[in-house]
């Protein structure tokens, strides 16, 4: 649906984006992940046609957006980073204006009512935007992006500055939208990506570090770490010795109701029954035993600070 080819961007002598290549497929939620100042917003601005890249091109449905910007704008719903709105207008008034501008001629008021209820704005639709709280403003921003049934939705940090309940509502909304729309979501909040996106692009200092399915990305760093909580009258030294036959022990520490051990298998064999048997043999009681997933956060931090995952 959207193809980005050899995108470079410089502000004066400072190069901001370096040879970006990626594509966005129909019906997918793509997470665009990077620390602050990584070039996310610049990329978004290029994709919406607002900013012209120094070189490279962006194709929307196989049409170059710099040659036919209106074609892209007809099918685009965009929420910029700060949800910029006109404080002097009322919510419903603003949304119907956007609808008109987007060329919705038929059933304008119905379309507007639809996004108003979808984004939970019914309570505030007669209020001036200037008087709304940040959360509601963000929702108005989202509502204007949804108007006109766009094929492509680009959201630049949609949950920044919201309280946890609002964040959850917006995420639910995005998730619902993702069932039928193509969404590009930029964020620096990792849990958001884990929750919403199937595929993720990690960008830092204007370069793409990873472009993969979330699951594959997590597998790459996953060392299958297991955590056990052992209680009872155990000879800890003996248990350690027994376990090292097949496992590597990373950490041991005492907690209120026993000891916690973090272990990983030495080989590729399944060690679960071995671990269980060994603990029981040493008179231990196995209270907890679970695999510890390496979270996206770990991947992210590794990528950003070391540049590689392996």
């Amino acid at each position: 649906m959207l193809k980005v080819q050899h995108l470079n961007l410089s502000y004066g002598s400072q190069q901001v984006l370096f040879d970006l290549n990626f594509s966005l497929n129909q019906g997918e939620i793509l997470g665009f992940l990077g620390p602050n100042g990584a070039g996310k917003s610049s990329t978004m601005r290029i994709l919406t046609g607002y900013l012209k890249p120094s070189s490279g091109q962006v194709l929307f449905l196989d049409k170059d957006i710099s040659e036919d910007p209106i074609f892209l704008r007809k099918h685009l719903g965009y929420l910029p980073e700060t949800a910029p709105l006109y404080p002097e207008l009322k919510v419903a008034e603003y949304l119907s204006w956007v609808a008109e501008l987007k060329g919705i001629v038929k059933n304008t008021s119905q379309e507007v009512d639809k996004v108003i209820s979808e984004c939970g704005l019914s309570k505030v639709k007669a209020k001036l935007i200037g008087y709304l709280s940040k959360g509601y403003r963000q929702r108005v921003g989202l509502a204007q992006a949804l108007l006109g049934n766009p094929k492509l939705i680009i959201l630049d940090e949609p949950t920044v500055g919201l309280d946890p309940a609002q964040v959850r509502e917006i995420r639910d909304l995005i998730k619902k939208l993702g069932q039928e729309k193509t969404i590009l979501l930029s964020t620096h909040i990792l849990s958001e990506v884990e929750l919403l996106c199937k595929r993720v692009i990690i960008i830092n200092q204007g370069r793409i570090l990873a472009d993969e399915d979330l699951e594959n990305l997590l597998k790459k760093v996953e060392k299958t770490l297991y955590v056990l909580l052992v209680a009872g009258e155990v000879d800890l030294e003996k248990l350690k010795l027994d376990l090292t036959n097949q496992c590597e022990i990373h950490k041991i520490y005492k907690v209120e109701d026993g000891h916690i051990l973090e272990i990983s298998p030495k080989t590729k064999n399944d060690i679960r029954s071995f671990v269980f048997d060994t603990v029981v043999k040493n008179n231990g009681i196995l209270l907890e035993f679970y695999p510890k997933r390496s979270s996206l956060e770990e991947v992210f931090v590794k990528m950003i600070y070391r540049g590689e995952v392996h």
Partner: peptide
């Protein structure tokens, strides 16, 4: 910042 948004409309 509304200018950016304005230009994302047709």
């Amino acid at each position: 910042g509304t200018f950016e948004l304005l230009l994302s409309y047709p």
